[in-house]
Measured scan of single mutants.
Amino acid sequence: MSRESDVEAQQSHGSSACSQPHGSVTQSQGSSSQSQGISSSSTSTMPNSSQSSHSSSGTLSSLETVSTQELYSIPEDQEPEDQEPEEPTPAPWARLWALQDGFANLECVNDNYWFGRDKSCEYCFDEPLLKRTDKYRTYSKKHFRIFREVGPKNSYIAYIEDHSGNGTFVNTELVGKGKRRPLNNNSEIALSLSRNKVFVFFDLTVDDQSVYPKALRDEYIMSKTLGSGACGEVKLAFERKTCKKVAIKIISKRKFAIGSAREADPALNVETEIEILKKLNHPCIIKIKNFFDAEDYYIVLELMEGGELFDKVVGNKRLKEATCKLYFYQMLLAVQYLHENGIIHRDLKPENVLLSSQEEDCLIKITDFGHSKILGETSLMRTLCGTPTYLAPEVLVSVGTAGYNRAVDCWSLGVILFICLSGYPPFSEHRTQVSLKDQITSGKYNFIPEVWAEVSEKALDLVKKLLVVDPKARFTTEEALRHPWLQDEDMKRKFQDLLSEENESTALPQVL
């Protein structure tokens, strides 16, 4: 008996699950189920560990084997000379395990699969056993689809999209007709009724959600790893209520002995410091949205989908001078704002400069500016000194954290500008005749005249004003913003236009 009217009423009120309206889709043409990776026989039982391990490696599972009696060998002398080797079968990115008779397991190899009674669906509900069930008529011709799209860092995100009359449910929550939600590992998919569980979705590319604290899981769906560094790992996640993407940084307390840091400095109150950081608001710094204190720290951040500045300059790639100017102007505005709010970044580098898009002209935002507030000064500097390429001379020669101030950030900005303009770092371990530390503390950077011949004198002058060993003589952010190279009204107008595109209400910060 159909429950279409009941569920449609529920759909009209929406769902609290991570779902959002989605535009129309072009329906895929039908194809045989076997060619799409559906096993030839149905099963109602969950797999054992041996079955799972075989399939996850990209080899055929026991459900897909063919009797050897149906095959015969071709003698080598009868092999056609022009026969080309077969292409290897792509490894599946996800697996659906059937929970009921009449449904088959599915190895997801393609990027898009339609499910329903219509014969054009890649996964067609046409098993005779299924057709005899009382629920068969409640399934729509095109009930739902599972697909994946390219996300940040060229990774993939799996989604389920509801197109049914009676509802598609993920972990008992209604997706909603015309809406989608991301699928995470071990999600249970039910059709027409929330208790009519048909599939379990296994994402073969992500970790299980159960490793994360419950308070975090209640608000966010964790997904793929976006990156990792000395101070922690960053994962893509989704807000459950809105389906908006965020980035979540995970900082290990054990790695940084944060408990010991608190004992050594009783004034170090991470929760208080995070609340201060959350109040920071500038178009060129990453917004801190939320914070969870569990076995590790979880910092929920605004997501930038254009990648890191590092990706644009790695491998001796240089940027156009006009692009360097647009990016560097924004970096200076961001660091100036942090300094005005009493925050020294201490870890400025291309990896911590994020881009809003893949376009050459785009907004940038500074991230990882609050680590000293979370990890403690000593722990952070011990970590950073392991990779000193961007560290100021006074940091390398000081004991502990004494003896330096916000000028350290201006040195790091000078190193970043040098790399963007030239395509190579000013200080490098590859210069074996002088140690990296000695290069930095003496201010002897690697200047290649033929490379810098293409760079304007004004740009080079600003680099020199920032890479000054004496912090008292080094340019401040205010002085850098007043430098002739940055007195470019076309560049500032472009920045204002980019801000307006992102948010019509965002105004250009005042600069002296």
Rank of each mutant, 00 (worst) to 15 (best):
L71H: 15
L236I: 15
D82Q: 08
H163A: 11
S67V: 08
R262A: 11
V270D: 07
S24P: 07
G176E: 07
E86K: 07
I157R: 02
S53K: 03
I250M: 06
D162S: 14
T168K: 01
L99K: 12
S223K: 13
S2Y: 08
P182T: 05
W97T: 02
Q209P: 15
E122S: 09
K142H: 04
T89I: 09
E173I: 15
A9C: 10
S15D: 08
F115D: 01
M222H: 04
C108L: 05
G259M: 09
A190H: 15
N48I: 12
C121A: 13
T168I: 02
G178D: 06
V211G: 02
K244G: 06
E81R: 06
K177R: 12
S33A: 11
G176P: 14
E70R: 03
S12I: 07
S39P: 05
L183D: 02
C18F: 12
P88W: 14
S57F: 13
R148F: 01
D111R: 15
L96G: 03
Q69R: 01
N105K: 10
N171D: 05
H163L: 05
L99P: 06
A158V: 09
R217V: 01
L174A: 12
A94V: 01
S187Y: 13
I160T: 05
L216I: 15
S194C: 03
V109T: 15
Q11M: 04
F256T: 06
L99T: 13
P128R: 05
P85R: 07
P152T: 10
L106K: 11
P75S: 14
D126H: 10
D265T: 00
N185P: 08
I221E: 00
Q78H: 10
R132N: 09
N185M: 15
Q209R: 10
K224A: 05
Q20F: 03
E233V: 08
E233M: 15
D162H: 05
V150Y: 05
K249L: 01
K142A: 05
S41Y: 09
P75T: 13
G227K: 12
V270R: 15
R217S: 05
D126A: 14
P80L: 10
S55Q: 05
K135N: 08
S56V: 02
V234W: 01
K244T: 14
Q20E: 09
S155H: 15
N185L: 13
S49R: 07
G178Y: 03
Y136L: 06
S50A: 13
S67C: 09
G176Q: 07
F147H: 00
G165I: 12
L191A: 00
E233Y: 01
E188G: 01
D111E: 12
T68C: 03
S19I: 01
A98G: 13
S140C: 01
Q69W: 05
L96P: 00
L193D: 00
K131G: 14
W114Y: 09
V175T: 00
Q69P: 04
K119S: 06
A158C: 08
A17T: 09
R181S: 07
I157A: 07
K142Y: 12
R95T: 02
F125P: 01
R262C: 05
P182Q: 03
N166S: 02
F256I: 11
T242V: 07
T45A: 11
T43V: 04
R262Y: 12
G176R: 12
V175L: 05
F103L: 10
E149L: 00
K253D: 02
E84Q: 03
N110L: 11
K255E: 04
K241V: 01
E4W: 03
K249E: 11
N112M: 06
T45E: 12
K177L: 10
S19W: 06
M222P: 04
S252R: 06
C243P: 05
E161F: 03
S53R: 07
V198I: 08
S35H: 03
A257I: 03
L193W: 01
A267K: 13
T43G: 04
S228L: 01
P182K: 06
I251Y: 03
S53H: 05
H163I: 12
Q10V: 06
E188K: 10
R148T: 15
G165C: 07
A94Y: 00
R217G: 09
F144Y: 11
S41G: 11
L63G: 03
T59L: 03
D126I: 10
E127I: 13
R240Y: 15
Q78E: 11
H163R: 07
D118F: 04
V109C: 00
D118V: 12
P75L: 12
E173N: 07
P92G: 15
T272L: 06
L130M: 06
G58I: 11
R240L: 04
K241M: 04
Q78V: 05
S55L: 07
P88I: 05
T89W: 13
K253I: 14
S192E: 00
K119W: 10
A94M: 15
E84S: 09
H143W: 01
G14N: 06
G23D: 08
R95I: 01
V150M: 04
F202R: 00
E8L: 11
T133V: 08
Y139M: 02
L96F: 12
R180Q: 06
S140F: 02
R132S: 10
E107S: 09
S120K: 04
I38M: 11
K135P: 07
H13G: 12
L60W: 08
K153Y: 01
S28G: 11
G30K: 05
Q51P: 09
M222G: 12
T172Q: 15
